[in-house]
Design a binder for these strands. Structure first.
Length: 513
RNA sequence: GGGCCGCUAGCUCAAUGGCAGAGCUGCGGACUUUUAAUCCGUAGGUUCAGGGUUCGAGUCCCUGGCGGCCCA
């Protein structure tokens, strides 16, 4: 709490949030619910009590009494809680469906002869859809066989002041994203996605721990902009009197860890990129990065496949996952491997290599209506052609290997083909899921590459990295040969569920209302 | 960045340029076995904002806001 902030006290009264008696302006349904809250208080009851003597969860009751025959009384007294999601009142008998946070539903029944006239009338008068209630009573089944708690007593445990959306019509996508809490209340799929994500992240951590990796947390606020090619967010430190960058990647710090002897290291955390927002891009996104000494990009490919397959197995018990639309997606077995230039040559119907000169590549670009930027070199243009012509067809998991040196300044040169690097991108469902390198560890070559990057930055390329002298100093102490891999967590969820990125992120960024 | 579509009651959606409506929700009533309960009655609106055309604009035009889809 910050209510002691002295700066508030000196302000004129007009700047204070004015407490208006707004009830007259509220929509009828919200006014009515506030009146019901007030009526509870007036009659000495708490609309928001400190708790309720719950003796069993709804799931436990379903578990224990799931096979109870129709129209049976057990004599078993329980206390249960839940949110009211359906109400069916008759004259002297009321039914309500309660739902718990895990999605389990159970019926509550209130009969005149058990609770008395006053409690039954209050129930009908004061309880709305969406309220949290507690019920004490006997576990029974109704004449229609529905497992129920027949109340001796009921209590409001949290009055809902806003009406729930209609349960039988889907909310608009915008409402779902802007009011995820409501989405979670009414849509089982929304709750399921949260659980799926937690399962996947836990699976990744356990898979890495099982391989003797250590998890670390490296700076999110960075003095220099580096580790990838992307536009950063800039913020300000008052204490240091300097600009700071929200990190675009943890790479340069995880490599410092490897220099320091943490030979298997990973981080799962957020990166921030000041770029476009669409169905597969979010300005903040969760990422796994992992580095392993004495590994290379082949090692990392095998491990990446295993991490994804183990996550799939945790979700579905096999390497075949079921997408939200019901289609099955097979992530099992070995995955296809192609090379960047090989797959591009196939798409163009003509051989191109890292040697293919710029004018020839520009002809291909013109022929296939791929727009070009005069600042690009032949490597960048080849990658753009690849993204336009090959990527959309990469549905089954595919490793695309051996990228041009020009676009991969932190990657080791290919051990056989000059001009290429030992880098792969993993594509699935037409988007990039992960990337890995045989890391560049020669500090002299690294310095040359980073100086070239910083010259680009100085010339105004907002994506280009700044020269990180401290990183180079670390590299000069000697980093062992290593493989490094990065995987988008949100995109892994997309691959496993078939959902859009705004569904896999619990609270995606939205413009102000 | 370009194009297209949308924004109307708490929610989901209707409404040839001519009285702003439906279903669910809400409110009042009936009902002791309901399952999106049913039946009777009833309330609920700054039609995203601003401007324009018109006797008359939710509807047509312009500007802006927000969202979605497609393209680059």
């Amino acid at each position: 709490m910050t209510t002691n902030d002295p700066s508030i006290e000196g302000k004129p009264v007009t700047d204070q949030p004015v407490h208006i008696d707004a009830d007259d302006d509220l929509p009828e349904q919200m006014r009515v619910r506030r009146e019901k809250r007030a009526r509870l208080l007036e009659t000495g009851r708490e609309p928001y009590p400190v708790g309720f003597p719950r003796t069993a969860t709804l799931a436990e009751i379903r578990e224990r009494f799931g096979d109870l025959p129709t129209d049976t009384a057990t004599g078993e007294k329980v206390g249960v809680t839940g949110r009211v999601i359906f109400i069916r009142n008759t004259g002297k008998l009321a039914f309500a469906t309660l739902r718990a946070g895990d999605g389990t539903e159970l019926q509550a029944m209130l009969s005149l002869d058990r609770v008395g006239q006053e409690a039954l009338d209050d129930w009908k008068r004061l309880v709305d859809l969406g309220d949290h209630v507690g019920i004490e009573g006997e576990v029974i089944t109704s004449r229609r066989g529905e497992l129920s708690v027949l109340a001796d007593r009921w209590e409001m445990t949290a009055k809902s002041l806003r009406p729930l959306p209609v349960a039988h019509k889907p909310m608009s996508e915008e409402s779902r994203v802007r009011q995820r809490y409501v989405d979670l209340i009414v849509r089982p799929q929304a709750r399921e996605t949260v659980r799926t994500r937690a399962t996947v992240v836990r699976s990744l951590r356990e898979s890495l721990h099982n391989r003797d990796y250590l998890e670390v947390e490296t700076p999110m606020l960075q003095l220099l902009h580096g580790g990838a090619a992307a536009r950063p967010f800039v913020t300000r430190s008052n204490a240091l009197d300097t600009d700071l960058y929200l990190r675009i990647a943890p790479e340069l710090f995880l490599k410092r860890c490897v220099v320091g002897g943490i030979e298997r290291v990973f981080e799962i955390n957020r990166n921030f990129r000041n770029e476009g927002v669409d169905s597969s891009h979010s300005p903040e996104f969760a990422m796994l990065e992992a580095y392993q000494a004495y590994a290379d990009y082949n090692t990392m490919a095998t491990m990446t496949r295993e991490l994804v397959q183990e996550a799939a197995f945790r979700l579905s018990g096999s390497h075949v996952v079921r997408h939200h639309d019901g289609t099955e997606f097979d992530l099992g077995g070995e995955w296809r491997e192609v090379t960047l230039y090989g797959s591009l040559s196939e798409a163009l119907g003509e051989e191109v290599t890292v040697e293919t000169p710029m004018p020839r590549l520009m002809e291909f670009a013109a022929k296939h209506d791929v727009p070009i930027d005069p600042k690009w070199g032949p490597g960048k243009l080849a990658e753009e052609l690849f993204e336009a012509l090959v990527v959309p067809g990469l549905i089954a998991p595919t490793f695309v290997r051996d990228y041009p040196e020009e676009t991969s300044p932190l990657t080791r040169a290919h051990r056989e083909v000059p001009g290429l690097t030992e880098k792969w991108d993993l594509y699935v469902l037409g988007f990039e899921l992960a990337t890995a390198y045989s890391e560049l560890v020669d500090p002299v070559v690294q310095r040359d590459r980073l100086v070239a990057q910083s010259l680009l930055a100085a010339k105004g390329d907002p994506d280009a990295m700044q020269l990180d002298e401290d990183f180079l100093r670390a590299m000069e102490y000697g980093m062992p040969p290593a493989g490094g891999m990065g995987m988008g967590i949100d995109r892994l969820l997309m691959a496993l569920t078939g959902l859009g990125i705004r569904e896999t992120i619990l609270f995606p960024i939205a413009r102000p209302e």
